[in-house]
Amino acid sequence: MHELSVAAALFEWAEEQSRTHAPRVLRSIELELDPLSCLNPEALRFGFSALSAETPLAGVALELVSVRPTYECRLCGARLAAAESPLSCSGCGAPLPRLSRESSLKIRSIEVE
């Protein structure tokens, strides 16, 4: 939905990384994507490749790893990764944890050579 703005933030960050690690060359970026993030992986790839075309970052690969959404207990704050909305907290047993406020798109690693 807002993949282009996310791709722009990613591109900006990747440029910074590429400067930091020069003369090594940035080859790929591994990202964690939660399926409830409202981000379409293909649109994100397209945005990133459009922005990086004809720049030193052209050809940098995006590896998108799908992770389970994180829920948080409204009582004890425990964080629970689950494919489906859990009915209770596995820590304290409080009912109905809610979807985490935390970002559903994170950078895991980069590959430079």
């Binding site: 996310v6 933030a9 990613l10 960050w13 690690h21 090594r24 990202l31 406020r101 935390e102 970002s103 798109l105 994170k106 950078i107 895991r108 690693s109 980069i110 590959e111 430079v112 050579e113």
Partner: peptide, 18 residues
């Protein structure tokens, strides 16, 4: 060479929201 990041949130919005 692989460089890993701990909990690196990409979105500027998420950082500002925090």
């Amino acid at each position: 060479m692989k460089i890993t990041f701990e909990n690196k949130v990409l979105s500027k919005n998420d950082r500002i929201a925090a």
